[in-house]
Amino acid sequence: MKKLSLFLLLNLLFVNRSLTAIQVTILKINGEVQIRKGVEETWIRAREGMILEDIDSIMTGVGSSAELSLTGHTLFRLASNAMLDVTDLRDITEQELFLYIMEQKLKKIEPASSKTKLRIGNVSVVHGESQSNGQIDPADQHPDFWIQEKNGAIALYEQDYLTNSIVKIYKTLEIYPNIQDCGEMHLYLGKSFEALHKKGQAIESYMIAMQKSQTPTCDIDIRNVVAREADLALKRLDAK
């Protein structure tokens, strides 16, 4: 009986793959909007009526926007200076979100197999590490790309794609772990969790947002907004 319940639960969790496929049509363009097909390197100018596949991306320039139709009916508005992968718009249930977050946490745990795996010999430490590689040259970093990703996540949050917003923020933070966003991303992470009634995760995110907003290099306006909103949210959630 237990096995049967588990099987049914897994079936409920893992919905049919065909249901997750998504098609996006560009309905309206305002200003400079570009799309990128699949894994191509170049962006091309978008046109109204264009159909995007599930591996494509869309990006709006500063002061531009686009209206999208998702699988023929739902309307989605992408605001200024934002980037979105079509996969960011796929259905993500709360259970899937939970699995995703758990996966992120599990990734941090060293796999047990490395300890039990057959090894030839009995080497305590492997030597030969190079001292040259690993340092990031500041010139190689492109601090502005994350802003478009962040704006894409905000667009998702504002249009009630809460689980999608959370996943996009996590992915952006994975690619850009050292960005100086003054806690803005964690603020929206907290907002999304709060809207999903995940109080613990919301409080945790707001606290990180509050902490990051205190970074001296932060823009004073952003810092004040993030700190005030995070503080209010923490009070609202009885975390203070």
């Binding site: 990031i136 790309f145 050292n178």
Partner: peptide, 8 residues
């Protein structure tokens, strides 16, 4: 061995 920030 390239870090994510250097992906570009």
């Amino acid at each position: 061995d390239i870090q994510p920030e250097q992906g570009r």
